[in-house]
Design a protein around this nucleic acid. Structure first.
Lengths: 109, 109
DNA sequence: ATCGTACTTAACCAAGCCGTTAATTAACGG
DNA sequence: CCGTTAATTAACGGCTTGGTTAAGTACGAT
């Protein structure tokens, strides 16, 4: 589970982390600001941020005692690129056509 | 972690499961067929399939003693839709413009 | 020097994940 | 009925995750 894509998907698998990303889409924020909407401890948030950071989904900077996080959407593009390999299955019409072709092919031999 | 999106992302966070999906993109397959490329036991594969199924990423049917799996890409579309909310951050130019606008706005007050 | 604020690290715990082997279920074929 | 093949379920072990509280670090302000 050490590959990049796995890290990204695993990071996105937690609703708290997705909410943090949503918040960061509105602009940078400090840890306490990010923690505010949630009913969990600061250390917990701190670790969520670490997970997001090691997935490359955020970058962090510090000024004085504040550490502010910033959304980095590159990994999201990566993940989307991976999923797009399957986009041809999204379209119901295509799926039906595909199934039809497959059926035809199986009738041959 | 019971929400749909979390299930989907968690399912995708495993390379074996992603490989299974890739295989299924080429057509339906039985459990042993799916297991073949991997160096792990059949029960392990069986459980991966259960994870994929409860995320809605595959559907399963049986004929005689064979259970064949079929790719269901709907959840992938869902996941992509979620990520697309951030697509404006993917484009570097936009990001720079966005940062610029934000700076301007912060200069005002 | 010390206090307060912002945050991280450490130590711990319960629950979940991913793998194993062994046992079980299910269906077909002689 | 019996044996074989396909797959799942059960029981277990080790590692990870997501949370906790308590202690530590880093910086600014007084």
């Amino acid at each position: 589970m050490t590959d990049r894509l796995s890290l990204i998907f695993a990071a996105l698998a937690d609703p708290t982390r997705r909410a943090i990303l949503a918040r960061l889409a509105e602009g940078e924020a400090t840890v306490t600001e990010l923690a505010e909407p949630f009913d969990i401890s600061l250390p917990a948030i701190s670790r969520h941020l670490k997970v997001l950071e090691s997935a490359g989904l955020i970058s962090r900077s510090r000024s004085a005692q504040w550490r502010s996080s910033r959304l980095e959407a590159g990994p999201l593009r990566e993940a989307t690129a991976w999923m797009e390999r399957y986009s041809r299955f999204w379209d119901d019409n295509f799926t039906r056509l595909d199934a039809h072709l497959k059926r035809l092919q199986e009738e041959k031999p």
